[in-house]
Structure formats: C-alpha cells, structure tokens
Simulated scan of single mutants.
Amino acid sequence: MRVDFYQLSRDPVDVTVGKLARKVMQAGERLVIVAQDEGQREGLSQTLWGQGGGAFLANGPADQPHAARQPILLSAECAAPNDARMAILADGKWREEATAFDRVMLLFDTEATDDARTLWRDLAAREAIDNRIFKQTPEGGWREGR
C-alpha cells in the first residue's frame, strides 16, 4: 500500500481535496474522504459539488442510502461501502483502518508537521507501506519531495 503525505502550505484543505478528488476521478477510481467533523465533511461536499458547470464532483455521505453507488463518499469512518481503493484523510488524522486501501493521501498543515514526521517514521518501518511526501509549489501544484 502507498501513503502520500501532503503538506498544506498554500491552499486550504477544501481546495486540496477538490484537486486530489478530480485526479482520482480522472483515473477512473472511486474515493472515500475521511474527516471526523461533520461540519468539515459538509463543507467538503459543497466544495466538490460547487466546482462549477459540468466539472462538479458527485459525492454523498457514507451513512446515507445508495452510498455504494457514490463515486466519492464522505465519512467519519475509514471504510469504503463504494469499494473505493483510495482514501483522503482530510482531517490529518491517521487511522489504522486506512491500511486496507491501496493508496491513502494524508493532508496535514504546518501545525501538524511534528505528528506527521512521527507517523512517517512509524509507517516507514513497515515493509508493506510505501511512504511519499508531496509539497506544494508556489504556483499551487505539487511536487514529490523528501
């Protein structure tokens, strides 16, 4: 499995989730976006729906009917009723259940850097996990770093 650490420096969580979710959808994959706070999940949902015109990203809550049909689920739990193989941990909190996914994107800000470093070392010690770090460029793109 692969864990991508995304260090937020320029764009806020909602903008970053929108960019990453669009790439996941373009790759033909399904996605689970995890955040403990219901208000954050609702805000992320509005951001995804509000992309504008035909560019919206269809999504729904994991605890509602027809969750299995949603291309993007928003959930407090790290589970995939829609059979997603990718997850975004939008609230920056690691959950051991995330290891069930093929790829996990952990978003964290500068205040959580020390926690992210500790988690990085813990996951790097596991042979089955491939860690990568991505840092935002001044232009808003992402580059893989060290």
Rank of each mutant, 00 (worst) to 15 (best):
residue 66 H to T: 15
residue 24 V to F: 10
residue 124 A to L: 13
residue 122 D to Q: 15
residue 111 E to A: 15
residue 4 D to Q: 09
residue 45 S to R: 13
residue 14 D to C: 09
residue 101 F to N: 00
residue 43 G to H: 10
residue 26 Q to L: 14
residue 20 L to T: 08
residue 76 A to L: 01
residue 10 R to T: 12
residue 10 R to P: 02
residue 126 R to L: 08
residue 3 V to H: 01
residue 140 G to N: 09
residue 73 L to A: 06
residue 74 L to G: 02
residue 63 D to I: 12
residue 108 F to T: 02
residue 61 P to G: 12
residue 93 K to R: 10
residue 73 L to D: 00
residue 58 A to H: 12
residue 91 D to M: 01
residue 95 R to C: 04
residue 1 M to L: 09
residue 95 R to Q: 14
residue 4 D to Y: 02
residue 92 G to K: 02
residue 125 A to G: 13
residue 50 G to K: 05
residue 73 L to Q: 06
residue 21 A to P: 08
residue 105 M to L: 12
residue 121 R to S: 14
residue 82 N to E: 07
residue 141 G to N: 14
residue 88 I to K: 00
residue 88 I to M: 09
residue 16 T to Q: 11
residue 133 I to T: 11
residue 53 G to T: 07
residue 26 Q to H: 11
residue 12 P to A: 14
residue 50 G to Q: 03
residue 136 Q to K: 06
residue 131 N to V: 08
residue 41 R to N: 04
residue 78 C to E: 08
residue 99 T to H: 00
residue 102 D to Q: 08
residue 7 Q to V: 01
residue 72 I to K: 05
residue 117 R to Y: 12
residue 133 I to M: 09
residue 108 F to R: 00
residue 26 Q to N: 13
residue 47 T to V: 07
residue 55 A to N: 14
residue 138 P to Y: 10
residue 115 D to Q: 15
residue 112 A to P: 03
residue 114 D to I: 03
residue 79 A to H: 10
residue 110 T to M: 03
residue 112 A to N: 07
residue 50 G to R: 09
residue 107 L to D: 00
residue 82 N to V: 08
residue 8 L to H: 04
residue 71 P to R: 10
residue 1 M to S: 05
residue 141 G to F: 02
residue 94 W to E: 04
residue 79 A to K: 13
residue 7 Q to A: 14
residue 79 A to W: 00
residue 117 R to E: 13
residue 123 L to Y: 01
residue 63 D to P: 05
residue 106 L to C: 03
residue 124 A to G: 05
residue 16 T to D: 05
residue 63 D to Y: 04
residue 85 R to C: 01
residue 39 G to W: 05
residue 51 Q to K: 15
residue 139 E to S: 15
residue 25 M to F: 11
residue 99 T to M: 11
residue 105 M to P: 00
residue 143 R to W: 05
residue 13 V to P: 03
residue 14 D to Y: 11
residue 61 P to H: 09
residue 19 K to L: 12
residue 94 W to H: 00
residue 67 A to V: 07
residue 114 D to P: 02
residue 40 Q to L: 09
residue 90 A to W: 01
residue 138 P to S: 10
residue 65 P to E: 13
residue 26 Q to D: 15
residue 11 D to I: 02
residue 125 A to F: 07
residue 75 S to A: 12
residue 8 L to M: 06
residue 41 R to P: 02
residue 131 N to L: 12
residue 120 W to M: 07
residue 80 A to S: 13
residue 123 L to W: 05
residue 122 D to S: 14
residue 100 A to M: 08
residue 35 A to P: 03
residue 39 G to Y: 02
residue 12 P to M: 09
residue 83 D to F: 04
residue 35 A to D: 01
residue 96 E to K: 04
residue 22 R to K: 14
